[in-house]
Amino acid sequence: MNASPTRDFFVGLFVLAGLLALAYMSFSIGNLQYKGTGGLQVFATFDQIAGLKPKAPVEIAGVKVGQVIGISLDDTYRARVDLDLDKDLQLPIDSSAAIVTAGLLGDRYIQLTPGAEETFLQPGEQIAYTESALVMERLIGKFLVNVDDKPEEKADKPAAHDP
């Protein structure tokens, strides 16, 4: 009763527009879609990940192919990073992974460089070749130490050997 087709039409339109806006927010801006297309889960270990965070993108030649899904410490005190890559991505087993920074102070992400082998990585396997993150402070520190005639290195050494 009290049926008003125009009113129903506008309500439908409103709900549609609202859902589209929500979808734009979620998928286009919020990058929700990379959750669905994963499927190839591999891992890599690094000496230093320096601020890499879960959900950081994984790229090949600047194209996003997956994301970081987990970061943990393995038995040998290296950082184990689990990656979720696109299911149909064929990654040669001699590919390498590097942690790089977007811009000077930007977020860190993982850059994959495909190798040349004919066999491909299977789910659960490890990317053998890795290149750790450059830690900006350490770089700057090294640079300063070299300039200042290494006074801090002297101070460091006894401390390191003390126990």
Binding site: G18, L19, A21, Y24
Partner: peptide
């Protein structure tokens, strides 16, 4: 829905 429209 309104909030999403506002944001867009």
């Amino acid at each position: 829905l309104l909030s999403a429209l506002f944001i867009v």
